[in-house]
Structure formats: structure tokens, C-alpha cells
Write a protein that binds this DNA or RNA. Structure first.
Length: 139
DNA sequence: GCCAACGTTGGC
DNA sequence: GCCAACGTTGGC
């Protein structure tokens, strides 16, 4: 199993919106960046991901599971763009703020720190464990 | 609201 | 194929 991070502006699509979808899940559509798309193509059903709120909140707020592999993005007819489907599986007891992540030397190589603009990114198993711990959820 | 960083586009 | 111009994103 691999680990990922999905970034969203809470004004457009928030963790609450994702949780409200329940086990039905939702397409992670709207990605128009090749790097992010390529990461989604690498995903397998059952992979886990952090759900991150950008803008005001800037924190990891929950964990999602990939429930469908990459397929055409229904929000466009442009064949270049694909997306996976994800569902919420756990809320962070304690949201993990970007400040905390930046303050932890073990996380200094995270893509979130190195390239904050990439909307879908891989997370290492080690980073996954550290942040789950900070969030108060089982890895 | 500003600005830096990055990705994309188009002209050459 | 290169590079300048532009648009977008996200942190501050």
C-alpha cells in the first residue's frame, strides 16, 4: 500500500463535504496538472491519503482511501485528465498544521514543504506514521 | 492583498 | 527546442 496527500481549498471542497459523501466517496476531479495526474495514475485501490486544507487552515484534517483507480475526469471532455475516487475513513482528532510539519525536522523533506503548490503528492511510509501520530489516529 | 514559485503556452 | 510571457497557486 502506498500513501498520498490530497490538497483542497476548503471553500471549494472541504473535509466536511468529503465526510458527508460517506462510503459512496467522490471523484477527485478538477486536477489540471500533469505531475498530480501522474501520481493519481499510480494509485491503487486501498491506498491511503491525507486530506489537506490549504488557504486559511493549512492543516491535515483527515484520512481517505482510494476506492477507484484513475479514470477519465467527468468535469472535462479533454482526454488528458484523469482522477481517482476517494472516501473519507478517519478524521484527525487533532488537525496537523503546516507549522507543525515545518517545525519537525523529520518532515523537512516532505513534498508539502518542498513544493506546496502540487495538489496531489506522494507521502513516504515514515512521514505517514509521524503525521498519523500527531493527528491522534492509528496509521 | 501581495508576491514568489512554478507550470504552461506560444513565438521564434 | 528554447525562452519569454503569462496565469495560477498558496503561503504570508
Amino acid at each position: 500500500m502506498r500513501y498520498w496527500l490530497f490538497k483542497s481549498e476548503p471553500g471549494n471542497w472541504s473535509w466536511q463535504d468529503q465526510v458527508a459523501k460517506g462510503d459512496a466517496g467522490e471523484e477527485w476531479d478538477g486536477v489540471r496538472n500533469y505531475q498530480a495526474r501522474n501520481f493519481m495514475r499510480d494509485m491503487s485501490v486501498g491506498d491511503r491519503g491525507f486530506f489537506y486544507h490549504s488557504q486559511n487552515e493549512k492543516a491535515v484534517v483527515g484520512i481517505v482511501e482510494v476506492m477507484a483507480e484513475a479514470h477519465p475526469d467527468s468535469t472535462t471532455t479533454d482526454e488528458r485528465w484523469a482522477c481517482v475516487d476517494i472516501r473519507a475513513i478517519a478524521s484527525a482528532k487533532q488537525p496537523v498544521a503546516l507549522d507543525q510539519i515545518k517545525a519537525d525536522p523529520r518532515l523537512s523533506d516532505m513534498m508539502l514543504v518542498r513544493n506546496p503548490r502540487l495538489s496531489v503528492q506522494p507521502v513516504t511510509e515514515r512521514e505517514w506514521g509521524i503525521i498519523c501520530d500527531m493527528a491522534g489516529i492509528a496509521p
